[in-house]
């Protein structure tokens, strides 16, 4: 029998949790409103086409040039590069942990990979700037140890815990019966993994990849430190070995000294809005994919 005090206590806890949940939504909305409010005035200076398609970013020139194309492409190069490295590695790692590794190994490997996520991004930046960058530049014969692919490499390791953890969960939740049937039909272990388990876990893996993408595109400190921040439009595959400037790095580097309510200030908010929209869309897609996958599984 519950006492009145217990009931009141429970009621209070429930409300608190409700408030916390509602607050999360309210904060996202407030952030969005704030971004839009401070981004919109830039369109008194320029048009959407000129902003997104402009090839030159010289915000302090006279007259200033607010072309985001080099920054958008910079972010795209670094992020795509990170995915090219982290998806195969991450999914392979998840498959190994879930399907192949013996229990003791699984129990050390998964927390170890998740530990990667606890390393602050500035540490990855330092590693890239002082160790990996100069070493790679030396090996590849590059004139300078700051380039897009270095950012990709660092980001790949930062996105990996997310990809491994989420896709490992997806792979593990594939029903045992599917594996047993496949093995009973004479398929080898590898065939079972490749033809049965991975396809069944597909939606979870896609969600993992999209979450990793969201992580990579929004990362700031590391790319600021290792990509050189030159606002040039990357050209072809060679662009990966050249310096680039990402959207996040631009905001971080320039916001500090930009005077309030100048066109430059509003342009930086427009970049922020664009980033917000990109991560919002990828997260929404990831969410939809996970949900659809969940329903199909049942």
């Amino acid at each position: 029998m519950r006492t009145g005090a217990q009931r009141a206590w429970e009621w209070l806890i429930e409300r608190l949790i409700q408030v916390a949940g509602a607050l999360a939504v309210v904060f996202v909305l407030l952030i969005f409103v704030f971004l839009v409010r401070d981004a919109l005035p830039i369109f008194r200076e320029t048009t959407v086409g000129e902003l997104v398609g402009g090839k030159t970013w010289l915000p302090t020139a006279d007259p200033p040039k607010f072309g985001l194309l080099p920054l958008i492409l910079g972010s795209l190069y670094v992020t795509l590069g990170a995915l090219v490295i982290s998806i195969p590695l991450g999914v392979a790692c998840a498959t190994f942990i879930s399907e192949v590794a013996p229990r003791w190994m699984r129990e050390t490997l998964k927390p170890a990979v998740e530990m990667l996520a606890t390393i602050p991004s500035v540490i990855f930046g330092f590693l890239g700037l002082l160790l990996v960058g100069p070493w790679l530049a030396d090996r590849l014969g590059l004139p300078v140890g700051l380039f897009a692919a270095l950012g990709s490499l660092m980001l790949a390791f930062m996105a990996m815990p997310m990809i491994v953890s989420v896709s490992e969960d997806a792979i593990r939740s594939v029903p045992r019966a599917l594996r047993e049937n496949s093995l009973a039909l004479g398929a080898t272990r590898w065939q079972t993994i490749r033809r049965v388990v991975l396809p069944a876990a597909r939606s979870g893996i896609v969600a993992a990849v999209l979450l990793g993408l969201g992580r990579a595109i929004g990362e700031t400190m590391t790319v600021l430190m290792v990509t050189g921040n030159a606002a040039v439009i990357p050209q072809g595959l060679e662009g990966f070995l050249r310096p680039v400037r990402t959207m996040t790095a631009t905001i971080a580097a320039e916001m500090g000294e930009t005077a309030y309510h100048t066109p430059h200030y509003h342009a930086l908010f427009a970049i922020g809005l664009l980033l917000f929209i990109i991560t919002f869309v990828t997260n929404t897609i990831a969410d939809a994919v996970t949900r659809r996958g969940g329903r199909m599984g049942r």
Partner: peptide, 27 residues
Amino acid sequence: KTRDYAAAALKQASNQAVLALVSKTEA
């Protein structure tokens, strides 16, 4: 006044970062 920094210029966030990069990059 028409001249401005080249787009290809590497941008560093601090004097120390410029020093570190130049001391490690021959060109």
